Amino acid sequence: MEYSIAKFLLIILIMAFANMCAALYFSNVDRKKAGAAAFWSAMLVLINAFTIINYVENNIYIAAAVIGTYLGTFGTIKWQKARTL
Rank of each mutant, 00 (worst) to 15 (best):
I67E: 05
I53V: 11
A63M: 12
Q80D: 05
I12L: 09
T76L: 06
I52H: 05
S27W: 07
G72T: 01
M20F: 12
S41E: 02
G72N: 02
T73Y: 06
K32P: 03
M15E: 15
M20Y: 06
K32A: 03
I52E: 10
F17M: 06
A63E: 10
Y70K: 04
K32Q: 11
G72Q: 01
L44C: 02
G68P: 06
A18N: 06
V56D: 13
E2H: 09
I14R: 11
N58L: 10
F26L: 04
A16I: 13
E57Q: 15
S4N: 07
M15A: 11
K32V: 05
I62Y: 14
I77K: 03
I53F: 14
Y25S: 00
F26Y: 05
I67M: 08
Y3W: 15
L46M: 12
G72W: 00
T76I: 04
N54I: 13
W79G: 06
L24I: 07
Q80M: 08
T69W: 11
F50W: 08
N28M: 00
I53R: 05
I52F: 11
T51P: 02
M43V: 08
F17C: 03
I67W: 10
T84P: 02
V66C: 09
D30L: 06
I12G: 04
V66Y: 11
M43N: 12
I12T: 11
